[in-house]
Write a protein that binds this DNA or RNA. Structure first.
Length: 225
DNA sequence: CACCAGGCAAGTA
DNA sequence: TACTTGCATGGT
């Protein structure tokens, strides 16, 4: 890799500016959004959260006490609504049984322990857990999503076989352990991915095009492993 | 119309 | 262990 992650970050930041993530008004909204956004456009998550807001249900206790069928209807626009209702409730079961219903108490647990605990919950995988750690608990944990994966592999910055843990370690090894940096970097990768690095890429206009291998346009050799 | 979005878990061989 | 499939709505 002839370009450093730091240079990539600088380039993205210059072109796109601060992304102001996570778009939420409370830590609870971040946690909720982290589940709702799984494989889903953020626009649809906004509708679900807005429904909950209008119903004054944006608190752990309110949703925990809400009948699941009602939660399903409110979050329906975010898709996978039955599954996500179960997942949110699984998470709240953990918050109430292990942290007396206090999200802020949960968020004070040390990073390694909390990550392990979150991963035990059915429906919370690595990206969701790390999103909570970075954007709700403000820990220096790099979030790897589908765009991060795609961008790094198409540029040849990591091997095609690299899995989540390997990619995450790559960022955390080459960058300072800085939550604010990880916050902005990941948000920028999602933004640039949305704009240019989709399944059907538009690399001509991408600010990262100068770092593509060869000289050509980014043609994905294969999709994600 | 087909495709895909800030994943994850369960099922199959 | 390594693939494959289901989950669901809404925008392009």
């Amino acid at each position: 890799m002839t370009v450093t992650l730091d240079e990539v970050y600088q380039q993205l930041y210059e072109d796109l500016g601060p992304q102001n993530w996570w778009p939420a008004e409370s830590a609870f909204e971040v946690v909720l959004g982290a589940v709702l956004v799984q494989n889903t456009a953020w626009r649809n998550v906004e509708k679900a959260i807005e429904n909950l807001r209008q119903s004054e249900l944006l608190s752990a206790r309110a949703i925990y006490e809400l009948p699941p069928e009602e939660l399903e209807e409110l979050i329906r626009p975010a898709g996978y609504f039955r599954m996500k209702t179960r997942r949110i409730r699984n998470l709240l079961d953990y918050v109430f049984t292990q942290h007396e219903g206090s999200l802020s108490a949960m968020l004070k647990v040390d990073t390694e322990t909390l990550r392990e605990e979150l991963l035990q919950i059915n429906g919370i995988g690595p990206e969701t857990a790390d999103s909570i750690l970075l954007y709700a608990a403000e820990r220096p944990v790099f979030v790897v999503d589908t765009y991060t994966n795609r961008i790094l592999k198409r540029h040849g910055w990591i091997e095609h076989e690299a899995d989540y843990a390997t990619i995450q370690a790559h960022f955390q090894t080459h960058l300072e352990a800085d939550a604010q940096l990880y916050n902005e970097f990941h948000a920028l990768l999602v933004r640039i991915g949305n704009l240019y690095c989709r399944k059907k890429p538009r690399c001509e206009e991408c600010p990262l095009v100068k770092w593509l291998p060869e000289d050509g346009i980014c043609t994905p050799p294969e999709e994600e492993p």
